[in-house]
Simulated scan of single mutants.
Amino acid sequence: MSEVTMTVNGREMTGTVEDRTLLVQYLRENLGLTGTHVGCDTSQCGACVVHVDGKAVKACTMLAVQASGSAVTTIEGLANGAELHPVQAAFREHHGLQCGFCTPGMIMTAVDIIGRHGSDLDEHTVREELDGNICRCTGYHNIVKAILAAAGAGEPQRLAAE
């Protein structure tokens, strides 16, 4: 057993976990933050994406003890009070969600993509960057549209060689 302390969504949290506890398990089971979903447990689907020290991380591939001392942001901590984060608002406005299972991971990944690229995004880059996130409902067109809108890049231009 190990003690972990991390800042989660702006609040310092301390707990005791087994050394093999995954970050996604700690967030869901110990802290009750169930917005971070468990999909595949093998880092293939992206449903568990959170930010650790400002970078997108698949929480099923990181141990809770590895995140100790870090700042972790989950989908629950993305919004500012009652106001949606601009990426969340863009997903709602552009119908970037269907069943909703992949949505938290997609949004957390999108925030990271926009943070790294700003408005200098195009459809090809967004699709390439989303490669590790799976939408089983195949809502990618609207997800890409929402990310480009949130980045200020406007409507996606269709790729000529798709």
Rank of each mutant, 00 (worst) to 15 (best):
D120V: 05
L78V: 01
E128T: 15
L27Q: 05
P156F: 02
D19I: 09
I134G: 06
P104I: 01
R28Q: 14
L121F: 02
H85A: 08
T5D: 00
G10Y: 00
V50C: 13
Q44K: 11
G32Q: 12
H37I: 10
T14P: 00
E155R: 07
P86R: 00
C102L: 07
T74W: 13
K58E: 08
A89N: 01
Y140N: 09
G77A: 05
C137Q: 10
E129F: 06
G35R: 09
A151G: 03
M62D: 02
E162Y: 10
V126S: 06
T125Y: 01
T74I: 09
Q88K: 04
R127M: 05
Q66T: 13
S70C: 15
V52G: 03
E76V: 09
K145Y: 08
E3V: 04
V126G: 03
A146V: 04
E12P: 11
D120H: 15
A153C: 05
C40W: 09
M108D: 07
E29N: 14
E12M: 13
G105T: 10
V52T: 04
V144G: 02
S43R: 14
I143T: 05
A146N: 06
L23G: 04
L159Q: 14
V52P: 06
D120L: 08
N9V: 02
L159V: 13
R127K: 12
V24G: 05
